[in-house]
C-alpha cells in the first residue's frame, strides 16, 4: 500500500475544512435567523467563504497526491 502518509495528510486537511465549513454554515444560519431579510447577502457570502475553505482543502489534497 503506497501513499498512506499522503492519505493521512489529506484526511487532516479534510478535518480542517470540515470544521471550517461547519462553522461558516452554522454562523450563517444564526445570522439568517437573527436577520431574515438579509438572507440573500448572507447566503452568497456563506457560499463564497465555503468555496475559499474548500480551496485550501483542495490544495492539500493536490499536494498529497503529488508528494507521495
Amino acid at each position: 500500500m503506497t501513499g498512506t502518509l499522503a492519505a493521512i495528510g489529506a484526511g487532516l486537511a479534510v478535518i480542517g475544512a470540515g470544521y471550517g465549513i461547519g462553522t461558516v454554515g452554522g454562523k450563517a444560519m444564526e445570522a439568517i435567523s437573527r436577520q431574515p431579510e438579509a438572507s440573500g447577502d448572507i447566503r452568497s457570502g456563506m457560499i463564497l467563504m465555503a468555496a475559499f475553505i474548500e480551496g485550501a482543502a483542495l490544495i492539500a489534497i493536490l499536494l498529497s497526491i503529488f508528494i507521495q
Partner: peptide
C-alpha cells in the same frame, strides 16, 4: 447548499485515495 459541494468533494477524495489500493 455548501453541504452538497462538500459531500461531493468527500466522495471525490475517498475515490482518489482508493486509487493506490485499487
Amino acid at each position: 447548499m455548501s453541504r452538497n459541494i462538500y459531500s461531493a468533494l468527500l466522495i471525490f477524495t475517498a475515490i482518489l485515495f482508493s486509487f493506490p489500493a485499487i
